[in-house]
Amino acid sequence: MTPQDRAAVAALCAERAGLRVDPDKEYLLENRLGPVARREGFGALSDMLQAMRDRGDERLAWATVEAMSPAETAFFRHPPSLEQAVAQALADFAGRREGQTLRIWVAACGAGQEVYSVAMLLDELAPAGVTIDLCASDLSERRLEKARSGVYSQFEVQRGLPAQRLVRHFEKRDDSFVVAQRIRQMVRWRRVNLLEDLSPFGPFDLVLCRNVLGGLLEPARMRVLGNLTETMAEDGRLVLGAGDVVPGLTAHEQDLGRAADPRAA
């Protein structure tokens, strides 16, 4: 990739999704975008970038942005904060009148490990009769497709997932492990760009958006945080990750973020 190519990709990612992409990290860019070029039938990555420029190809542009968005994920990341957030949401909900729904959103769910971790906790902890609406979203349609399938490799199910939960919530299919249908059908999926207007989406009692804001440029970070708070119920809680430090948070937003990952404190 030429320095111009790398700068163009970084600018595209910033414009479309607010992503912070370092144009000096040539290896990372080629590592993420090389498979996209091959999948799209280009002999070389530079050919794909050229075609994207010449044709103004939107699909290629989004495939590039999606490939550069953070994909690192595992089951039960920082289990104490996850378990605390879910248990607290259930406890807050316990006092409500009958007929109401506990609404939870896992924003930027990646390949699904985070939302399935939440679903497993709800399956284990929620009292019978509680109606739950569990939503998951991601910028990448490809990652959502993988998440929806609930199929994980042996390597993936050994990252963060205790063996007790593996045998309780998964089935074996050939060499893969599949999230049990009981857990899969708890989740509603949707492609969402967190930079867009999210106000029709919600209100949620609990929003988990861990380790997302830290990967965004400063203006996008504040905009996403504002968008997230728009989707929250009056007494809703927002859980951020350890690296999601948000300078200049307003008092209202800090109040909404009071359940934020304690490791971020």
Partner: peptide, 18 residues
């Protein structure tokens, strides 16, 4: 790597499984 094997190990007192 069969789930029944993992269940068997846990039932006998294994704490985790790789």
């Amino acid at each position: 790597n069969e789930l029944d094997r993992i269940r068997e190990a846990l039932a006998l007192g294994a704490n985790e499984y790789i």
